[in-house]
């Protein structure tokens, strides 16, 4: 028993620390194998990764930029950059988080280019208290969507999220729509976990406040 333990320890110490950590933690994410194959020159492995994540990258870019053509360009650029920088991916984070991080940077850069007079960053507009204190306490209809067609509803949701500052919009998109964890969101945005939490709270409350105009229960006859 003692011998066995010792030999295991010895085996592990021969390995690089990040491999040891991987062995001791969860089984490796299936993406890692694809990444390794892609690094070795297998473009079909990389194509598989593109297939897996292009939707998420496109939606993230479109949410941040609010522009479809930009989102298409960004999606291409993100995967091309990822392909070229594949050697820099060390596997310390999920491959998808790494991609999202590139997508966020590309999207913010695109926004900055478009609005030359305004600075756009993750820190923008976080000083304001706007929307962080709820004012509308009306209940919503049991099914808030019931008064709108699918296309009307899509328009409401688009307009509403477009009205948020980019920093809030991005946090809400990653955390609540794309379902990244708080830690993954922080990593993708280069923010601390508390900063993500505070932006997320404000984003949710501002969206709630704005949607309330459409979805609140009202007296009969009025919308």
């Amino acid at each position: 028993m003692a011998v066995e333990t010792q030999s295991t320890t010895e085996d592990l110490t021969d390995l690089p620390p990040e491999i040891v950590a991987t062995l001791q933690a969860e089984p490796p994410h299936p993406d890692l194998e694809l990444v390794e194959r892609a690094k070795a020159g297998d473009t079909s492995a990389f194509e598989q990764l593109v297939r897996q994540y292009e939707r998420q990258i496109f939606r993230t870019a479109q949410h941040i930029t609010q522009n479809r053509e930009d989102a298409e360009d960004i999606t291409q650029d993100v995967f091309f950059k990822a392909f070229q920088k594949l050697d820099q991916f060390q596997g310390n984070s999920k491959f998808s988080t790494w991609l999202v991080r590139i997508a966020v940077n590309e999207s913010l850069m695109r926004l900055r280019k478009r609005k030359t007079s305004k600075t756009v960053s993750m820190d923008q507009d976080v000083q304001t208290d706007e929307g962080s204190i709820p004012r509308d306490f009306a209940e919503w209809r049991p099914n808030p969507e019931q008064n709108y067609s699918q296309s009307e509803l899509a328009e409401i949701l688009r307009k509403t999220i477009a009205g948020l500052p980019p920093g809030f919009r991005t946090v809400f998109t990653l955390r609540d729509i794309e379902n990244l964890s708080t830690e993954e969101t922080a990593e993708a945005l280069g923010l601390s976990v508390p900063a993500v939490k505070s932006r997320l709270l404000r984003a949710r409350l501002q969206l709630r406040e704005r949607l309330s105009r459409y979805f609140r229960k009202t007296k009969e006859g009025s919308k």
């Binding site: 306490f137 919503w140 969507e145 699918q150 509803l153 809400f172 729509i177 709630r208 949607l211």
Partner: peptide, 20 residues
């Protein structure tokens, strides 16, 4: 209570209706 309920609905609506 209303804030919790309507915030939850806000998140659910965005999750359920990918606008893009």
């Amino acid at each position: 209570e209303v804030v919790v309920d309507t915030t939850r609905k806000t998140i659910d609506i965005y999750r359920g209706h990918q606008p893009y």
